[in-house]
């Protein structure tokens, strides 16, 4: 049932990448429990604007949990307390009247804070540039049904392909590792026959790029899997490791 609640927000404010940040406190009053978390922030921002203050900068676009643009650490958890949910899909009914909510940007060595909750996640694009594709120029593809793919294989590939590139896995990892993100892409393409020809080169190149960009290593904490809004399984990290080892030992790619 719809109710209204009052909550206290402690939000990270930071003017630029090189400036020092700090928490600021705001009161969000008369918040309908049907609101999404971002709608609650909209309400706070409208108020700040009307009072001549600078609103809180945060990234968002689809507000449907699919574009991967939104994200912040809510009371210590990327995207907040609800399982399998992006911040834009988190609703205020998950909070109680009188709660205090701490809101911070995703933090990682490889992600710079641009302003307030807005961060630079371009290193994730760079990992994809290192090989997260199948080299099939437009035109010349064989008929789509030429190669049957077992339904289960396609489904497992789809489980990996569901990644939205939000970076929550990195933010949740004590080592700020991008293994789940990278593993999901390597795994998706390694599973499909179309992705096999470049599998070895892809695994080596993407893993190396990830290391070079300042992402940490995986020490099996499993936080990434727990916080992933799309519930991507760490079995994809295992598949990536297998692909990487196979490529390192047995293929001509070095």
């Amino acid at each position: 049932m719809t109710q209204t609640i009052n909550v206290t927000l402690k939000i990270w404010r930071q003017n630029g990448p090189k400036e020092k940040g700090r928490f600021e406190t705001f009161n969000a009053e008369n918040i309908s429990t049907d609101m999404s978390f971002l709608e609650m922030l909209d309400v706070v921002n409208e108020q700040l604007t009307r009072n001549g203050k600078i609103p809180i900068a945060f990234d968002h676009d689809c507000r449907e949990g699919i574009c991967g643009t939104c994200g912040a650490v809510i009371n210590g958890r990327p995207h907040g307390p609800e399982k399998a949910t992006t911040l834009c899909q988190l609703h205020m009914r998950k909070f109680k009247n009188g709660d205090t909510i701490a809101i911070e940007p995703f933090r990682a060595m490889a992600f710079r804070v641009i302003r307030d909750l807005v961060i630079d996640r371009s290193p994730l694009d760079e990992i994809i540039q290192a090989g997260g594709y199948i080299s099939a120029n437009t035109g010349g593809a064989p008929d789509a049904n030429a190669i049957p793919i077992p339904q289960q294989t396609a489904e497992t590939a789809m489980d990996a392909a569901a990644c939205i590139g939000c970076g929550a896995c990195v933010a949740s990892c004590p080592n700020a590792s991008a293994m789940l993100f990278t593993g999901a892409k390597i795994s998706q393409l390694a599973l499909l026959p179309q992705g096999r020809p470049e599998a070895a080169e892809r695994a080596i190149s993407m893993v190396r790029r990830m290391d070079r960009l300042g992402f940490g290593n995986c020490s099996n904490e499993r936080e990434c899997e727990a916080e992933c809004p799309k519930e991507i399984s760490i079995t994809h990290i295992a598949r990536m490791n297998r692909e990487f080892l196979k490529a390192s030992f047995f293929s001509s790619v070095k």
Partner: peptide, 8 residues
């Protein structure tokens, strides 16, 4: 084209 790109 999309199948060739690995779209599941």
């Amino acid at each position: 084209q999309c199948v060739a790109q690995g779209i599941p």
